[in-house]
């Protein structure tokens, strides 16, 4: 579930509020969004993919909340790791270009 909106990184663009399919975030005037309905998070990681500042962290735990420590996440290179894997960064190459499902499909 979503566990972090980094105060340090977030610019308050509210893209996450707009794109979260389960409406987990609330926009806050003149501030950064809050995680208003954490239990509605479906752990789909889409907010991370769309966050231009790599300010969000979705823990892999789908059914319960876990404590996270921002400096540790940064040290482990986890903030923005999904966006980077999709190639959705400015200098990234779309992941779809290296999609190798055809090699796996043959094996299915």
């Amino acid at each position: 579930m979503i566990e972090l909106v980094s105060e340090e990184r977030c610019t308050g663009c509210n893209i996450c509020v707009a794109i979260c399919p389960t409406n987990v975030f609330d926009a806050v005037p003149a501030s950064i969004p809050t995680i208003a309905r954490q239990s509605d998070c479906q752990t789909c990681f889409m907010c991370e993919a769309y966050c231009p500042e790599d300010a969000l962290y979705v823990a892999p735990d789908a059914d319960e909340t876990v404590a996270v420590d921002e400096p540790r996440l940064v040290a482990r290179d986890l903030l923005g790791s999904y966006r980077s894997a999709l190639g959705w960064t400015k200098t990234g190459r779309p992941r779809a270009l290296s999609d190798a499902m055809h090699k796996l499909v043959k094996s299915f």
């Binding site: 990681f45 892999p60 790791s81 999904y82 894997a85 999709l86 992941r95 290296s98 999609d99 190798a100 499902m101 090699k103 796996l104």
Partner: peptide, 12 residues
């Protein structure tokens, strides 16, 4: 290798 190239979300 093919799995990782194809499905980054699987490995998250």
């Amino acid at each position: 290798r093919a799995m990782r190239a194809s499905q980054p979300n699987f490995f998250l």
